Computed example of a mutant assay.
Amino acid sequence: MRSAFVGALLGATLAIPAAAQEAGDPAAGESEFRKCRACHMIQDGSGADIVKGGATGPNLWNIVGSPIAHMEGYNYGDGLLAAKAANPDLVWTEEELIAYVTDPTAWVREKSGDDSVRSKMTFKLARNQADLAAYLTTVSPDTPAE
């Protein structure tokens, strides 16, 4: 009985991505965000630049705790819109961000239930996903308390 429990526990632990098993380091995530600046900026609600960056992707200010595909006027891709249609109450959490930046197309396919959709974001973050998500939480002042 004990070995079955240990096996089940080990199997459940291995099923969770390594990045999601530990809390991220916001300072390391701030450094990691350099990879994202080509497409994303972080500009607060008053228009002040926190991190100057591109406008190809949406502004990531206050992203954690916000509904997916919520920014007015931004032209979201079909994959993210399909994920939103299938999950209208889905919000960006650290866990969802970790999964999304690891493989955006796999994430929109899973969330939408449609294997034909793709994400406009082609970049995949191979490591330090939890750090990036922890950093984005620090620039999300409206994040609900857990």
Rank of each mutant, 00 (worst) to 15 (best):
L80S: 06
S112K: 04
V108K: 02
S119G: 05
G24V: 06
A20M: 12
I68A: 04
N62R: 01
S116M: 08
G47Q: 06
I98W: 01
K52T: 11
V91D: 00
V101P: 02
A86R: 05
R2K: 15
I42P: 07
A106S: 10
R127D: 15
P144N: 04
A38K: 07
L125P: 00
C39P: 06
V6S: 12
A126D: 15
K124F: 05
G11P: 07
F123S: 13
D78F: 00
E94R: 12
P26K: 01
W61H: 10
T56S: 13
I63P: 12
L81M: 13
S140W: 03
N59P: 11
G47R: 06
V108G: 03
E95P: 00
I42A: 04
A86F: 02
S119H: 01
D115Q: 12
H40D: 08
Y76Q: 03
L125I: 09
V91P: 11
T13S: 15
E30A: 10
S116Y: 00
L10P: 13
P144T: 06
S3I: 15
E96K: 08
T93E: 07
V51M: 06
V108Y: 03
A4D: 15
L14M: 11
P17D: 01
Y135T: 04
W107Y: 10
I68M: 09
N59L: 07
I98Y: 04
A4L: 15
E96A: 13
T13L: 15
E146N: 14
A130R: 06
Q43T: 09
R127P: 00
T137G: 10
G7H: 08
G53S: 04
M121R: 07
Q129K: 08
Q21T: 10
K120T: 11
S116F: 01
K111C: 08
Q21V: 09
N87M: 06
R2A: 15
Q21Y: 04
P17G: 03
M121V: 10
N75E: 13
F33N: 02
P88R: 00
E72I: 00
P88I: 02
L132P: 09
G57W: 02
P26N: 01
G65Q: 03
D78T: 11
G7I: 09
P141L: 00
L132I: 07
T138M: 07
E96R: 11
A4R: 15
F123N: 11
D78Q: 13
F33R: 01
S119I: 07
A23H: 11
V91F: 00
E146F: 07
E30C: 05
M121I: 09
F5Q: 15
A15W: 10
A134K: 01
A18Q: 13
L136P: 08
A23C: 06
T138N: 09
K120M: 12
A145H: 12
A38E: 14
M1N: 13
